[in-house]
Protein backbone atom coordinates (compact mmCIF):
# COMPACT_ATOMS: atom_id res chain seq x y z
CA UNK A 1 0.00 0.00 0.00
CA UNK A 2 2.99 2.30 0.32
CA UNK A 3 6.72 2.01 -0.02
CA UNK A 4 9.61 3.12 2.14
CA UNK A 5 12.21 4.49 -0.25
CA UNK A 6 14.73 6.09 2.12
CA UNK A 7 15.38 6.67 5.79
CA UNK A 8 17.55 8.68 8.12
CA UNK A 9 18.54 8.26 11.75
CA UNK A 10 20.12 10.45 14.38
CA UNK A 11 20.40 7.96 17.21
CA UNK A 12 22.32 7.09 20.37
CA UNK A 13 24.69 5.24 18.01
CA UNK A 14 25.59 8.50 16.28
CA UNK A 15 24.48 10.97 13.61
CA UNK A 16 23.73 9.11 10.39
CA UNK A 17 22.27 5.84 9.11
CA UNK A 18 25.65 4.09 8.99
CA UNK A 19 26.06 4.36 12.78
CA UNK A 20 22.52 3.15 13.43
CA UNK A 21 22.86 0.25 10.99
CA UNK A 22 26.18 -0.86 12.50
CA UNK A 23 24.87 -0.72 16.07
CA UNK A 24 21.71 -2.64 15.21
CA UNK A 25 23.57 -5.28 13.17
CA UNK A 26 25.94 -5.87 16.05
CA UNK A 27 23.03 -5.72 18.55
CA UNK A 28 25.31 -3.53 20.60
CA UNK A 29 23.94 -1.41 23.47
CA UNK A 30 24.57 2.25 22.75
CA UNK A 31 26.84 4.24 25.02
CA UNK A 32 25.36 5.38 28.32
CA UNK A 33 25.78 8.89 29.65
CA UNK A 34 25.29 10.20 33.16
CA UNK A 35 21.68 10.89 34.07
CA UNK A 36 21.21 12.52 37.48
CA UNK A 37 18.00 10.86 38.67
CA UNK A 38 19.00 7.35 37.70
CA UNK A 39 21.63 5.06 36.24
CA UNK A 40 22.14 6.70 32.88
CA UNK A 41 20.68 7.78 29.55
CA UNK A 42 21.49 6.97 25.92
CA UNK A 43 22.22 10.32 24.29
CA UNK A 44 23.14 11.07 20.69
CA UNK A 45 26.93 11.26 21.12
CA UNK A 46 28.40 14.70 20.69
CA UNK A 47 25.15 16.21 19.43
CA UNK A 48 24.69 19.93 19.93
CA UNK A 49 22.20 21.65 17.67
CA UNK A 50 24.12 24.93 17.49
CA UNK A 51 27.36 23.15 16.62
CA UNK A 52 25.77 20.95 13.95
CA UNK A 53 23.48 23.59 12.41
CA UNK A 54 25.51 26.74 13.12
CA UNK A 55 24.61 29.85 15.09
CA UNK A 56 22.31 31.33 12.45
CA UNK A 57 18.64 30.58 13.06
CA UNK A 58 19.31 28.42 16.10
CA UNK A 59 19.06 30.96 18.93
CA UNK A 60 16.74 29.45 21.52
CA UNK A 61 16.35 26.24 19.48
CA UNK A 62 15.66 23.23 21.66
CA UNK A 63 17.49 19.91 21.29
CA UNK A 64 14.43 18.10 19.96
CA UNK A 65 14.03 20.57 17.11
CA UNK A 66 17.74 20.31 16.34
CA UNK A 67 17.55 16.51 16.16
CA UNK A 68 14.52 16.72 13.84
CA UNK A 69 16.07 19.34 11.54
CA UNK A 70 19.21 17.22 11.11
CA UNK A 71 17.31 13.95 10.51
CA UNK A 72 14.92 15.49 7.96
CA UNK A 73 17.86 17.27 6.33
CA UNK A 74 19.61 13.97 5.66
CA UNK A 75 16.68 13.03 3.40
CA UNK A 76 16.02 16.39 1.74
CA UNK A 77 19.70 17.02 1.04
CA UNK A 78 19.91 13.71 -0.82
CA UNK A 79 16.67 14.42 -2.70
CA UNK A 80 14.96 17.83 -2.35
CA UNK A 81 11.24 17.49 -1.62
CA UNK A 82 9.68 20.97 -1.69
CA UNK A 83 6.11 19.72 -2.05
CA UNK A 84 6.37 16.73 0.28
CA UNK A 85 4.26 16.29 3.36
CA UNK A 86 6.08 16.18 6.67
CA UNK A 87 4.61 14.14 9.53
CA UNK A 88 6.52 14.22 12.81
CA UNK A 89 5.71 12.47 16.07
CA UNK A 90 6.13 13.83 19.58
CA UNK A 91 5.03 13.12 23.13
CA UNK A 92 4.68 16.55 24.71
CA UNK A 93 7.16 18.64 22.76
CA UNK A 94 10.23 19.76 24.70
CA UNK A 95 9.13 19.48 28.34
CA UNK A 96 12.54 20.87 29.35
CA UNK A 97 11.83 24.09 27.40
CA UNK A 98 8.22 24.34 28.60
CA UNK A 99 9.14 23.89 32.26
CA UNK A 100 12.02 26.36 32.01
CA UNK A 101 9.69 28.92 30.44
CA UNK A 102 7.03 28.56 33.15
CA UNK A 103 9.74 28.60 35.82
CA UNK A 104 11.02 31.91 34.45
CA UNK A 105 7.49 33.32 34.61
CA UNK A 106 7.14 32.15 38.23
CA UNK A 107 10.52 33.33 39.47
CA UNK A 108 11.10 36.49 37.40
CA UNK A 109 10.57 39.91 38.85
CA UNK A 110 7.48 40.19 36.67
CA UNK A 111 5.49 37.20 35.35
CA UNK A 112 6.31 38.11 31.75
CA UNK A 113 10.10 38.34 32.30
CA UNK A 114 10.71 35.45 29.93
CA UNK A 115 13.05 35.18 26.95
CA UNK A 116 10.97 35.51 23.76
CA UNK A 117 13.63 33.57 21.81
CA UNK A 118 12.65 30.46 23.78
CA UNK A 119 8.92 30.70 22.97
CA UNK A 120 8.94 28.49 19.84
CA UNK A 121 10.69 25.68 21.73
CA UNK A 122 7.73 25.49 24.13
CA UNK A 123 5.25 24.75 21.33
CA UNK A 124 4.72 21.15 20.19
CA UNK A 125 4.69 21.77 16.43
CA UNK A 126 7.96 23.69 16.37
CA UNK A 127 10.15 20.74 15.25
CA UNK A 128 7.88 20.18 12.22
CA UNK A 129 7.58 23.90 11.48
CA UNK A 130 11.33 24.45 11.76
CA UNK A 131 12.08 21.46 9.51
CA UNK A 132 9.82 23.08 6.92
CA UNK A 133 11.65 26.41 7.23
CA UNK A 134 15.16 24.91 7.19
CA UNK A 135 14.48 22.59 4.27
CA UNK A 136 11.82 24.51 2.32
CA UNK A 137 9.06 21.90 2.65
CA UNK A 138 5.69 23.50 1.91
CA UNK A 139 3.37 20.47 1.82
CA UNK A 140 1.06 19.35 4.65
CA UNK A 141 3.00 19.67 7.90
CA UNK A 142 1.57 17.66 10.75
CA UNK A 143 2.61 16.90 14.31
CA UNK A 144 1.27 13.58 15.62
CA UNK A 145 1.34 13.80 19.41
CA UNK A 146 0.67 10.19 20.31
CA UNK A 147 3.58 9.13 22.49
CA UNK A 148 5.38 5.85 21.83
CA UNK A 149 2.90 4.86 19.12
CA UNK A 150 3.42 8.14 17.20
CA UNK A 151 5.62 6.47 14.59
CA UNK A 152 2.95 3.94 13.63
CA UNK A 153 0.01 6.36 13.93
CA UNK A 154 2.13 8.63 11.72
CA UNK A 155 2.33 5.82 9.13
CA UNK A 156 -1.44 5.48 9.23
CA UNK A 157 -1.85 9.25 8.83
CA UNK A 158 0.70 9.32 6.00
CA UNK A 159 -1.14 6.53 4.21
CA UNK A 160 -4.31 8.64 4.22
CA UNK A 161 -2.41 11.65 2.85
CA UNK A 162 -1.08 9.51 -0.01
CA UNK A 163 -4.42 7.81 -0.70
CA UNK A 164 -6.28 11.10 -0.72
CA UNK A 165 -3.66 12.56 -3.05
CA UNK A 166 -2.62 15.32 -0.64
CA UNK A 167 1.05 14.58 -1.26
CA UNK A 168 3.09 12.35 -3.56
CA UNK A 169 5.82 11.90 -0.96
CA UNK A 170 5.55 11.90 2.82
CA UNK A 171 8.53 12.33 5.12
CA UNK A 172 7.32 10.56 8.23
CA UNK A 173 9.19 10.27 11.49
CA UNK A 174 9.56 11.58 15.00
CA UNK A 175 11.96 13.25 17.41
CA UNK A 176 12.51 13.01 21.15
CA UNK A 177 15.16 14.73 23.24
CA UNK A 178 16.85 13.58 26.39
CA UNK A 179 16.54 16.22 29.11
CA UNK A 180 16.60 16.36 32.90
CA UNK A 181 12.93 17.41 32.88
CA UNK A 182 11.90 14.41 30.78
CA UNK A 183 13.95 12.16 33.00
CA UNK A 184 12.35 13.45 36.21
CA UNK A 185 8.86 13.18 34.72
CA UNK A 186 9.58 9.61 33.56
CA UNK A 187 10.80 8.77 37.06
CA UNK A 188 7.61 10.21 38.57
CA UNK A 189 5.41 8.19 36.18
CA UNK A 190 7.29 4.91 36.60
CA UNK A 191 5.80 1.90 38.36
CA UNK A 192 7.48 -0.18 41.06
CA UNK A 193 9.96 -1.65 38.54
CA UNK A 194 11.41 1.84 38.12
CA UNK A 195 11.70 3.86 34.92
CA UNK A 196 13.32 2.62 31.74
CA UNK A 197 16.67 4.10 30.80
CA UNK A 198 15.90 6.97 28.46
CA UNK A 199 17.19 7.39 24.95
CA UNK A 200 16.73 10.11 22.36
CA UNK A 201 17.09 10.90 18.70
CA UNK A 202 15.16 11.43 15.49
CA UNK A 203 14.41 9.19 12.56
CA UNK A 204 12.50 9.78 9.33
CA UNK A 205 11.18 7.54 6.55
CA UNK A 206 10.43 8.63 3.00
CA UNK A 207 7.07 7.15 1.97
CA UNK A 208 5.71 6.95 -1.55
CA UNK A 209 2.76 5.15 -3.16
CA UNK A 210 3.39 1.45 -3.75
CA UNK A 211 5.46 0.62 -6.80
CA UNK A 212 8.15 3.24 -6.24
CA UNK A 213 11.51 2.59 -7.88
CA UNK A 214 14.17 1.36 -5.49
CA UNK A 215 11.76 0.68 -2.64
CA UNK A 216 13.47 -0.65 0.48
CA UNK A 217 10.25 -2.07 1.90
CA UNK A 218 6.51 -2.05 1.44
CA UNK A 219 4.18 -1.22 4.32
CA UNK A 220 1.49 -3.89 3.91
CA UNK A 221 -0.69 -2.96 6.89
CA UNK A 222 -0.91 -0.59 9.84
CA UNK A 223 -3.48 -1.04 12.56
CA UNK A 224 -4.02 0.44 15.98
CA UNK A 225 -6.60 -0.21 18.67
CA UNK A 226 -7.03 0.19 22.40
CA UNK A 227 -6.66 -3.56 22.72
CA UNK A 228 -4.11 -6.30 23.38
CA UNK A 229 -1.10 -6.94 21.18
CA UNK A 230 -2.34 -10.33 19.86
CA UNK A 231 -5.67 -8.78 18.79
CA UNK A 232 -4.02 -5.90 16.94
CA UNK A 233 -1.27 -8.09 15.47
CA UNK A 234 -3.88 -10.62 14.32
CA UNK A 235 -5.90 -8.05 12.46
CA UNK A 236 -2.85 -6.37 10.92
CA UNK A 237 -1.66 -9.75 9.58
CA UNK A 238 -5.12 -10.38 8.21
CA UNK A 239 -5.13 -6.99 6.46
CA UNK A 240 -1.70 -7.72 5.04
CA UNK A 241 -2.81 -11.17 3.87
CA UNK A 242 0.06 -12.80 5.79
CA UNK A 243 -0.14 -15.86 8.04
CA UNK A 244 1.67 -15.66 11.40
CA UNK A 245 4.00 -18.44 10.24
CA UNK A 246 5.27 -16.25 7.40
CA UNK A 247 6.59 -13.57 9.76
CA UNK A 248 10.39 -13.65 9.86
CA UNK A 249 10.92 -11.19 12.72
CA UNK A 250 9.01 -9.27 15.34
CA UNK A 251 10.66 -5.95 16.13
CA UNK A 252 9.47 -4.70 19.50
CA UNK A 253 10.54 -1.74 21.58
CA UNK A 254 10.46 -3.30 25.03
CA UNK A 255 10.59 -6.77 26.58
CA UNK A 256 7.00 -6.31 27.67
CA UNK A 257 5.97 -5.77 24.03
CA UNK A 258 7.97 -8.79 22.84
CA UNK A 259 6.57 -11.03 25.59
CA UNK A 260 3.00 -10.00 24.76
CA UNK A 261 3.30 -11.97 21.49
CA UNK A 262 4.82 -15.22 22.83
CA UNK A 263 1.59 -17.11 22.17
CA UNK A 264 1.65 -16.11 18.52
CA UNK A 265 5.28 -16.44 17.38
CA UNK A 266 8.20 -18.74 18.14
CA UNK A 267 11.35 -17.61 19.91
CA UNK A 268 13.36 -17.54 16.71
CA UNK A 269 10.98 -14.88 15.34
CA UNK A 270 10.63 -12.94 18.60
CA UNK A 271 14.37 -12.99 19.31
CA UNK A 272 15.62 -12.28 15.80
CA UNK A 273 16.75 -9.07 17.44
CA UNK A 274 16.48 -7.72 20.99
CA UNK A 275 13.79 -5.14 21.77
CA UNK A 276 15.21 -1.93 20.31
CA UNK A 277 14.75 -0.06 23.59
CA UNK A 278 17.13 -2.53 25.26
CA UNK A 279 19.87 -1.24 22.97
CA UNK A 280 19.19 2.50 22.71
CA UNK A 281 16.87 3.21 25.66
CA UNK A 282 13.29 4.42 25.76
CA UNK A 283 13.22 6.89 22.90
CA UNK A 284 9.58 7.90 23.49
CA UNK A 285 7.86 9.26 20.38
CA UNK A 286 10.65 8.09 18.10
CA UNK A 287 10.75 4.53 19.50
CA UNK A 288 8.45 3.02 16.87
CA UNK A 289 10.31 4.81 14.06
CA UNK A 290 13.60 3.37 15.31
CA UNK A 291 11.89 -0.05 15.34
CA UNK A 292 10.90 0.45 11.69
CA UNK A 293 14.41 1.51 10.69
CA UNK A 294 15.85 -1.42 12.70
CA UNK A 295 13.53 -3.74 10.76
CA UNK A 296 14.93 -2.35 7.51
CA UNK A 297 18.47 -2.97 8.72
CA UNK A 298 18.06 -6.54 10.00
CA UNK A 299 15.97 -7.82 7.09
CA UNK A 300 17.88 -6.06 4.31
CA UNK A 301 20.78 -8.50 4.08
CA UNK A 302 18.61 -11.60 3.76
CA UNK A 303 18.56 -13.79 0.65
CA UNK A 304 14.91 -12.98 -0.10
CA UNK A 305 12.13 -10.58 0.95
CA UNK A 306 11.19 -10.88 4.61
CA UNK A 307 7.96 -10.12 6.45
CA UNK A 308 8.53 -8.13 9.63
CA UNK A 309 6.00 -7.19 12.31
CA UNK A 310 6.63 -3.98 14.25
CA UNK A 311 4.75 -3.62 17.53
CA UNK A 312 4.38 -0.51 19.67
CA UNK A 313 2.30 -0.46 22.85
CA UNK A 314 2.03 2.88 24.60
CA UNK A 315 1.45 2.49 28.34
CA UNK A 316 -1.41 4.99 28.01
CA UNK A 317 -3.39 2.42 26.02
CA UNK A 318 -2.71 2.50 22.27
CA UNK A 319 -1.39 -0.69 20.69
CA UNK A 320 -0.19 -0.32 17.10
CA UNK A 321 1.24 -2.79 14.61
CA UNK A 322 2.77 -2.41 11.17
CA UNK A 323 3.56 -5.25 8.77
CA UNK A 324 6.45 -4.68 6.38
CA UNK A 325 7.76 -6.67 3.46
CA UNK A 326 11.43 -5.77 3.39
CA UNK A 327 13.20 -6.19 0.07
CA UNK A 328 16.23 -8.47 -0.07
Amino acid sequence: MMDITAWSAVSPYGVGVQHFAAGIRQQRPAMTWADPPRAGGHLVPGFDQRTVLGKKGTKGMDRMTGLAVVAVGHLTQACPEPGAALVLGTTSGSVQSSMAFTRASLTGERPFDVDPATIPSTVMNTPAGQCAIWHGITGPNTTIASGRASGLLGLSYARRLLRAGRARTVLCGAAEEYSPARSWLAAACAGPAGPAVLGEGAAVLRLEPEGAAGALATVLAVDSQLDTAPVVAGRALCQAGIAPGQVWAVVSGTRLERDSLTGMFGHDVLDRMPPVGELIGDTGAVSAVFQLTAALVVAAGQPGPRYVLVLSADPAGTTAVAILRVAA
Binding site: V123, M124, N125, T143, A145, S146, L153, Q225
Partner: peptide, 21 residues
Protein backbone atom coordinates in the same frame (compact mmCIF):
# COMPACT_ATOMS: atom_id res chain seq x y z
CA UNK B 1 -7.78 11.57 22.17
CA UNK B 2 -7.56 8.59 24.51
CA UNK B 3 -9.94 10.34 26.91
CA UNK B 4 -12.57 10.62 24.15
CA UNK B 5 -12.17 6.95 23.21
CA UNK B 6 -12.29 5.79 26.85
CA UNK B 7 -15.25 7.98 27.71
CA UNK B 8 -17.22 6.26 24.95
CA UNK B 9 -15.87 2.81 25.79
CA UNK B 10 -14.23 2.39 22.37
CA UNK B 11 -11.57 -0.24 21.78
CA UNK B 12 -11.60 -0.71 17.99
CA UNK B 13 -10.42 2.82 17.40
CA UNK B 14 -7.42 4.71 16.08
CA UNK B 15 -7.05 7.47 18.66
CA UNK B 16 -4.58 10.13 17.56
CA UNK B 17 -3.79 13.57 18.89
CA UNK B 18 -2.58 16.19 16.44
CA UNK B 19 -0.31 18.79 18.00
CA UNK B 20 -0.28 21.34 15.21
CA UNK B 21 -0.94 24.33 17.45
Amino acid sequence: SLAVARELGLTDVEAATIGTA
